[in-house]
Simulated assay, not measured.
Amino acid sequence: MDNRSGEMQVFVKVVETGSFSATAPLLNLSPSAVSKVVSRIEERLGVQLFKRSTRHLALTAEGREYHDSCVRILQDIEEAEQRASQRSAQIRGMLRVNVSLPFGQHYLVPALAEFSRLYPDITVDISLTDAKIELQRDEVDVAVRMGPLHDVSYRARNLGRSRMAVVAAPSYLEQHGTPQVPSDLAGHRCLGFNFRRATGEWPFLVDGRLTHLAVGGGMLTNNGETMRQLTLQGLGISRVGLFHVYDDIQRGDLVELLPAFNAGDLEEINLIFLNQRHMPPRIRAFIDFAVDRLAPLLARSLP
């Protein structure tokens, strides 16, 4: 990892003290470590920063110029951190968040304790639902939604993508057998969604070609978390976002089926918010926090 600001701090302290040995205890380093830092800077820059003698160090012309730049940069860093700290203390107000059930329960809600510690003056009003919403009409500041975005009045920050997976509980497979090829699903209970946009077909790659296979025979539901629960109870086979059942698969509570035939289609996961010129600090803080904390977790959903 690049730590040039840390090297700059060592260099500036050497200039202040006039020696490696005097600098070392101030930074909890050995004199040789301090010397190596300065040598590393000189090698990278291709210039000599100090005129060395047995008794003292003296800056070269390049060293004085570099020192002035380092002091200015380190001051800018300190001021930036102070401004950020003061700003976070001033961020307050009501933040209304709407999240789909699976993502809310398994990702966002567990992260809210940390967000609350960072921004104690923000009151989070969170609703979990898979129903379609309109941000302005429903007075929502930020929403997390799956799939493609169609409303140009919204802005979005992408949290990640998740491939889809066909899964079942071991108890179901013990009773009904494990499908070996997609056509075997015709003899199984396949759970589905009752959304208006939902279809009764699942895509598979068969002999290198994309094929949509009609499935059915199981229950229907209107949200992903209920789908997960039905699947865990052994009531049928479902096709859901891997992000939703990743931990279940790792624990052995669910088994991924037909991975060799997976169509590779991905589900986008986005933060959406109104396209406004001046975004309130509380909304910006939440968006940045969510991307920073949750995007790495969703990256697991693409293996």
Results as ranks from 00 to 15, higher is better:
residue 2 D to C: 13
residue 3 N to T: 15
residue 4 R to M: 13
residue 5 S to A: 15
residue 6 G to H: 11
residue 7 E to G: 12
residue 11 F to R: 00
residue 11 F to M: 04
residue 11 F to S: 01
residue 11 F to L: 03
residue 13 K to C: 11
residue 14 V to P: 03
residue 15 V to H: 00
residue 16 E to C: 13
residue 19 S to T: 06
residue 22 A to G: 04
residue 23 T to V: 10
residue 28 N to T: 05
residue 30 S to R: 10
residue 31 P to I: 09
residue 31 P to D: 04
residue 33 A to K: 11
residue 34 V to D: 05
residue 35 S to W: 09
residue 38 V to T: 02
residue 39 S to F: 06
residue 40 R to H: 13
residue 42 E to Q: 07
residue 43 E to R: 15
residue 45 L to V: 09
residue 46 G to N: 04
residue 48 Q to S: 08
residue 48 Q to G: 09
residue 50 F to L: 09
residue 51 K to C: 05
residue 52 R to F: 09
residue 53 S to L: 14
residue 56 H to V: 14
residue 58 A to N: 07
residue 61 A to F: 10
residue 64 R to I: 14
residue 71 V to Y: 00
residue 72 R to C: 02
residue 79 E to V: 14
residue 79 E to D: 07
residue 80 A to P: 00
residue 81 E to H: 12
residue 86 Q to P: 05
residue 87 R to A: 09
residue 89 A to G: 06
residue 89 A to M: 05
residue 91 I to H: 12
residue 95 L to V: 01
residue 99 V to T: 05
residue 103 F to G: 06
residue 106 H to L: 11
residue 107 Y to F: 04
residue 108 L to W: 07
residue 108 L to T: 08
residue 109 V to S: 14
residue 113 A to T: 13
residue 117 R to S: 15
residue 119 Y to P: 12
residue 120 P to K: 14
residue 121 D to M: 14
residue 123 T to Q: 14
residue 124 V to Q: 13
residue 124 V to D: 08
residue 124 V to C: 11
residue 124 V to Y: 13
residue 127 S to G: 10
residue 130 D to F: 03
residue 132 K to F: 02
residue 133 I to T: 00
residue 136 Q to D: 08
residue 137 R to V: 05
residue 137 R to T: 12
residue 138 D to S: 04
residue 145 R to K: 08
residue 145 R to I: 09
residue 149 L to V: 15
residue 149 L to D: 06
residue 153 S to R: 07
residue 153 S to C: 00
residue 154 Y to R: 11
residue 155 R to V: 09
residue 156 A to P: 03
residue 156 A to Y: 03
residue 157 R to N: 03
residue 163 R to F: 10
residue 165 A to M: 01
residue 169 A to H: 00
residue 170 P to K: 09
residue 170 P to M: 04
residue 171 S to T: 14
residue 172 Y to L: 09
residue 177 G to C: 03
residue 178 T to A: 07
residue 179 P to S: 08
residue 181 V to H: 00
residue 182 P to T: 05
residue 183 S to P: 00
residue 184 D to C: 07
residue 185 L to D: 01
residue 186 A to F: 11
residue 187 G to N: 01
residue 196 R to D: 12
residue 196 R to M: 12
residue 197 R to C: 13
residue 197 R to G: 08
residue 199 T to L: 04
residue 199 T to V: 10
residue 202 W to Q: 06
residue 207 D to M: 07
residue 208 G to M: 03
residue 209 R to K: 03
residue 213 L to P: 02
residue 217 G to K: 08
residue 222 N to D: 12
residue 228 R to F: 05
residue 231 T to Y: 03
residue 232 L to A: 04
residue 235 L to I: 06
residue 238 S to V: 05
residue 241 G to D: 07
residue 242 L to K: 02
residue 242 L to N: 01
residue 243 F to S: 03
residue 245 V to W: 06
residue 248 D to I: 02
residue 248 D to M: 08
residue 249 I to M: 15
residue 250 Q to W: 10
residue 256 E to F: 11
residue 256 E to M: 11
residue 258 L to H: 04
residue 258 L to Q: 06
residue 259 P to F: 05
residue 263 A to Q: 00
residue 269 I to F: 01
residue 270 N to Q: 02
residue 271 L to H: 01
residue 272 I to Q: 07
residue 272 I to W: 02
residue 275 N to D: 13
residue 277 R to L: 14
residue 278 H to A: 11
residue 279 M to Y: 14
residue 282 R to W: 06
residue 288 D to P: 12
residue 290 A to L: 04
residue 291 V to I: 08
residue 294 L to H: 02
residue 294 L to C: 04
residue 295 A to E: 12
residue 296 P to Y: 07
residue 296 P to M: 08
residue 298 L to C: 01
residue 303 P to V: 05
